[in-house]
Design a protein around this nucleic acid. Structure first.
Lengths: 143, 143
DNA sequence: GCTGAAACACTGATTAC
DNA sequence: GTAATCAGTGTTTCAGC
């Protein structure tokens, strides 16, 4: 993982379907050298995968929320992970410092689906209560 | 935008570098038909782009935070968008219901960089104060 | 170890249907 | 929408740094 790998990743992030030769001409390598490095980055897990970014509104997933989870007593992160993994609408989540135990970013097709997912989280043992901020308008989208 | 388009997007989301023929054999179309649909989805803005997902820890972006922004008076969403767009570490953000005006998801290389970005937000006119929850351990990562 | 160059198979892009 | 064509790319192999 050197500066060339980083520059290749920068190029792929910009366009994951770019030709290896084109990437090579930018970073200063031949096409085959670029391919070898990309293969290695994928094999080593640095590159998790190649995906498309889709307009969320077109996808029908326009109801988003940030949810703070407050637990009873002490809850192991692994326990929270197991709980949130089973909820499909969870986009990302992490345990946090501060008054809440975890923050969860959710994206659902509508308010009803969001409520259902929230209920799944709330009914879990150890979850005391949640504090939900419904997203009204998306400002930045760089995921 | 029919069911076939959705299935093509599902395939691309799983592997954005998949050959059109492979996608076609899954969704039941020829390679050229798949290409035409993908081109149309890109041209119409449904597909925003093709990117790679990179392990954040390898990338050196392991300091994350969820930040609530509280503004003075009423602030137009567009104004907030302009402010947050200029901060590089912002991953996603949206105006929300509840006590806060907006929630921002940030990802920095270290605590110092995170603090710098926070300062950029705080010094903006109309921003009254912020409430930051530093992510301690990432639980879910589906972006 | 790493690289670049060449040969080959395959895919993407285009055209006609 | 499919089928066929051709240029271009991905992939592999090779020799060299």
């Amino acid at each position: 993982m050197d500066i060339l790998d980083r520059r290749i990743i920068d190029q792929l992030r910009h366009n994951a379907r770019a030709a290896y030769g084109d990437i090579g001409s930018v970073v200063g390598l031949s096409a085959s050298a670029v391919k070898r490095r990309v293969d290695r980055l994928v094999a080593s897990g640095v590159i998790r995968g190649f995906t498309v970014t889709v307009d969320p509104s077109v996808e029908g997933l326009l109801t988003e929320a940030y949810v703070e989870i407050f637990c009873r007593g002490t809850v192991a992160p692994e326990e929270l992970r197991r709980l949130l993994e089973s909820v499909a609408d969870v986009v990302d989540a992490g345990t946090v410092s501060g008054s809440a135990d975890a923050v969860v970013h959710m994206r659902s097709s509508n308010i009803g689906a969001l409520e259902d997912s929230l209920e799944e989280i709330r009914k879990a043992t150890n979850v005391d209560h949640t504090r939900t901020s419904i997203v009204m308008s998306r400002l930045i989208y760089r995921e």
